[in-house]
Design a binder for these strands. Structure first.
Length: 233
DNA sequence: TGCCAGGCCGGGT
DNA sequence: ACCCGGCATGGC
């Protein structure tokens, strides 16, 4: 059957599409396929998405390692912990009290509405994208980036994840204004690129990789970055 | 040493 | 509708 795409957009343009793909190609050439998310299960993706909020991934890995050693990387096992026990295990990830609460908020939602467990977690993630996003955002401690990370990397939906690096890259190369919000930046990608879960997966991962290397807050522009050679500063 | 990291919430304007 | 302080560890 012929696929008819009726994507309705305001700022869709071939030029935007072209530039966004040039950026992707430059990053992909520099770093290669990333194969995100670095996790063994969907639940581990969700846990990592919450733990990495404003936090270095290396610290998150320590926390995940603690959880794995304690054999609590399943919804049931984690839910059986007290908040203080959970907080102690995730201490290396920072903000451990708020994050323990946020993990429990997610688990509470899952058990109340889906009965918990890996099987029911799968059915939770299998919903259509808009409904799942709304449900995720209703959980206290799950904001736009965390929700979209779960949608893209756990539910494998074609959703573009925006983060601090994305904003820096877009603003420093004058793609978007300093005042641009999350939705505006997400629309720039999603309105100008085909819905492609694989592309969005690699694209976000590559932005993070180059961001870690070159896009620090105190570094307004870096010509060494894979994008430096052809994008305007 | 101080700055930074793959945000989000709640209270105050 | 913004704006801002709080949350916290570990690496460089």
């Amino acid at each position: 059957m012929q696929k008819v795409v009726v994507k309705k957009i305001t700022r869709c343009s071939h030029e935007n599409t072209h530039e966004l793909m040039r950026i992707f190609t430059a990053l992909f050439t520099a770093y290669g396929p990333q194969g995100w998310w670095p996790a063994q299960t969907k639940f581990e993706v969700i846990v990592g998405a919450i733990l990495t909020q404003n936090t270095n991934w290396g610290n998150v890995e320590r926390a995940i390692s603690n959880l794995r050693s304690a054999e609590v990387l399943t919804p049931e096992a984690m839910w059986a912990l007290t908040q203080d026990q959970l907080a102690e295990l995730i201490r290396p990830a920072g903000y451990f009290n708020v994050k323990a609460k946020r993990l429990r908020n997610f688990l509470e939602y899952l058990f109340n509405n889906y009965g918990g467990g890996e099987t029911n977690l799968t059915s939770f993630l299998k919903q259509d994208t808009a409904a799942l996003r709304t449900e995720l955002l209703s959980i206290n401690g799950v904001g736009p980036e965390t929700a979209d990370s779960i949608l893209l990397y756990a539910a494998r939906k074609a959703v573009f994840v925006v983060d601090a690096y994305t904003k820096r890259i877009l603003t420093r190369h004058s793609f978007i204004g300093e005042d641009a919000g999350y939705a505006e930046m997400q629309a720039l990608f999603m309105d100008n690129l085909e819905d492609d879960q694989i592309l969005f997966n690699e694209y976000h991962a590559l932005i993070v990789m180059t961001g870690k290397d070159y896009c620090k807050t105190k570094k307004p522009f870096c010509g060494e970055c894979p994008l430096g050679s052809f994008l305007k500063a």
